[in-house]
Design a protein around this nucleic acid. Structure first.
Lengths: 205, 205
DNA sequence: GTCTATAAGAAGATAGAC
DNA sequence: GTCTATCTTCTTATAGAC
């Protein structure tokens, strides 16, 4: 990884742990293994580093969204997948989402940074809401909607059903961000949540 | 209100908007209507102001918890209340909780401050989890448990049922903290959530 | 591109008069 | 208890040699 990228990476780590204001340019430089003034050959200011992180993150998420839409469309075309959606499949869906968000390193650091900085300006608040509230709800709503259409979940309000699926996942995620030692317990709760969700909305059970 | 208390109040407002590190002692003093050095007659450092806020908050929440336990115990003794728990009562319970947390000025500012500072040290992370995760879950679990015992909700797992009741409330709360303009929509969603919750867990429906 | 030296300014905190 | 003046330290950023 080149220096310019390593600066971004180390900065994100520090920002996610201490918040933008508590991280000094010298701290970032030290981690990269250079002196603070050298850093200004790569970025013109501390704020420029922060902005570059946001930009890169937007790029990554757009990429990901594109990939998921392709899968989503493929899945829609190949709808038979959903006619065989079992409780185990549903558990997999929830677990996969939860663990990816929780453990993917870039995701995790970025989410923590946004959590800390979200009230700093409206743009960051909107970004947080998009990434961790609206987008997951819309994506999962699409999937659950297809499962419902296949007759395996029964509801007259897909939006609320999706809220019932996702809100506990989000809730458990924020717990683990604060205290990783609760992860094991959270995973157990997650499974119980999804089994119960399936029982509540499942047609046959 | 005396100066010492007003310093706490204005500091909390500023900390909740900009975070501890972005608030300067001069900002707090200005709001109170004094100069920065005068502030040091009341608190020996900026950190001491922050600590005093945490301390006062702990005091307030303990007081509140005590009051709720008394009500809880009374309610348990007077269990007949729960035998007549209708959907409207359930809606009231959720709404009351949501709106109190959302609008109570001290609560709102304190929650936003803790959100910003939660990763700064473990003590603050634990406090956040206690106040906005574990305590509400345990309190609502107690109430819903009594409703279930009265036969109006049906479940073999009160904990997961309570998660299904509270997680969407928490989720909507964090949305409104970031963007108050979504409050009206959130309240509508809240009502739909609780009606659906009641349908899913209700014995007779 | 990296370094040392240093400027420029901010912010927390203290001294001492009133 | 509040003020003005000031100290001290920290932090971003630049200058200029290599």
């Amino acid at each position: 990884m080149d220096t310019k990228q390593r600066i971004l990476d180390e900065a994100l780590t520090l920002f996610s742990e201490k918040g933008y204001a508590n991280v000094f340019v010298g701290d970032i430089a030290e981690r990269v293994g250079i002196k603070a003034p050298s850093l200004y050959k790569h970025y013109k200011s501390k704020r420029a580093i922060f902005d570059a992180i946001i930009e890169e993150m937007n790029r990554r998420f757009e990429e990901q969204a594109k990939a998921m839409n392709i899968n989503g469309s493929n899945a829609a075309a190949d709808a038979k997948v959903y006619e065989n959606m079992s409780e185990e499949h549903l558990l997999g869906l929830g677990r996969q989402f939860f663990l990816y968000f929780l453990h993917d390193d870039y995701n995790k650091r970025f989410r923590k940074m946004l959590t800390i900085e979200q009230f700093h300006d409206k743009e960051l608040a909107d970004l947080y809401t998009k990434l961790y509230v609206d987008d997951p709800l819309s994506y999962q709503g699409m999937l659950l909607g297809m499962v419902a259409q296949a007759g395996l979940l029964k509801t007259d309000n897909v939006e609320i059903m999706t809220l019932h699926f996702y809100a506990p996942i989000y809730y458990l995620l924020t717990i683990c961000d604060r205290d990783p030692s609760r992860e094991e317990q959270a995973l157990k709760t997650l499974d119980e949540h999804i089994r119960q969700f399936n029982r509540l909305y499942g047609r046959t059970k």
